[in-house]
Amino acid sequence: MDETGKELVLALYDYQEKSPREVTMKKGDILTLLNSTNKDSWKVEVKITVNGKTYERQGFVPAAYVKKL
């Protein structure tokens, strides 16, 4: 869990989004878990840094590609 009590997951593999509802992640990324009720895909939040500014983006990733921490 992070400092706000949200559950975290670790990306086990790289994943490139295939639709606007998904998010891209790299192996080793730590993501905030938002919903894990679907056995196939979990909703997560990723933090992306562009030019020194951090943005948050929500979307789905394959459940088999992440592990709860």
Rank of each mutant, 00 (worst) to 15 (best):
G52E: 05
V46I: 15
W42N: 00
E3M: 14
K26H: 10
S36P: 05
N51M: 10
V44G: 00
T37I: 08
T54D: 07
Y15D: 00
P62G: 03
G52M: 04
G59H: 02
T32Y: 10
E3A: 14
L31I: 06
Y65W: 06
I48T: 08
Q58G: 03
L12P: 02
E7C: 15
D14E: 04
L12I: 09
T24D: 03
D14G: 04
V50Y: 09
K67A: 10
L34P: 00
V44Q: 00
T32K: 12
A63W: 03
K43I: 14
K26F: 10
S19W: 07
G52Y: 03
T49G: 03
P62V: 07
P20Y: 08
Y55D: 03
V9Q: 01
A64K: 13
I48L: 09
D14T: 05
V46P: 00
S19I: 04
P62Y: 06
V61F: 02
K39A: 13
N35A: 08
K53I: 15
D14L: 06
M25Y: 03
M1Y: 12
T32M: 10
N38Q: 09
G5Q: 13
V50S: 08
K27R: 11
K18L: 08
K26N: 08
I48D: 04
Y15P: 02
A64R: 13
L33N: 00
D14P: 04
L10I: 15
Y65Q: 04
D14W: 06
R21I: 12
A64T: 09
N38F: 08
V66F: 07
E56Y: 15
D29S: 06
V61D: 02
D29N: 05
S41K: 11
A64C: 15
F60W: 15
E3V: 13
V44L: 03
W42L: 02
T24V: 02
T37W: 08
G52Q: 04
V23M: 07
V46M: 10
M25L: 10
A64Y: 09
R21H: 14
K18I: 06
D14H: 05
Y55W: 10
D29G: 03
A63Y: 03
M25W: 03
L12N: 01
T24K: 03
G52K: 03
E45A: 15
V61M: 02
G5H: 14
E22A: 07
T49D: 08
Q16M: 12
K18G: 08
A11Q: 01
K53W: 10
W42P: 00
P20I: 09
T37M: 10
K47L: 11
K6E: 09
K67N: 04
Y13V: 11
V23R: 01
E17M: 12
G59P: 00
K47M: 10
P20M: 08
L12R: 03
E7S: 11
E7T: 13
L69I: 14
K67L: 11
V9N: 00
V9R: 01
A64E: 11
K67V: 14
M1W: 13
K6C: 15
D2C: 15
V61K: 01
E17I: 05
L31C: 05
E22K: 04
Y15W: 06
E17P: 15
Y13W: 10
S36W: 09
V23P: 02
V46T: 10
R21N: 15
M25F: 13
R21L: 14
D29E: 08
L34V: 10
T4G: 13
N51Y: 07
G28A: 02
A11S: 05
Y55T: 10
A64V: 09
R57G: 02
L12T: 04
E17D: 03
D29M: 13
N38K: 07
Y13K: 11
T4F: 12
K47T: 14
S36I: 05
P20L: 08
E3C: 15
T37R: 09
E17L: 06
K43C: 15
K43N: 04
S41V: 14
V66I: 08
A11N: 02
R21S: 14
Y13G: 04
Y65V: 07
L10Y: 11
E7K: 09
P62F: 10
V46E: 00
T4A: 12
Y65P: 01
A63E: 02
G59I: 05
W42V: 04
L8V: 07
K53G: 07
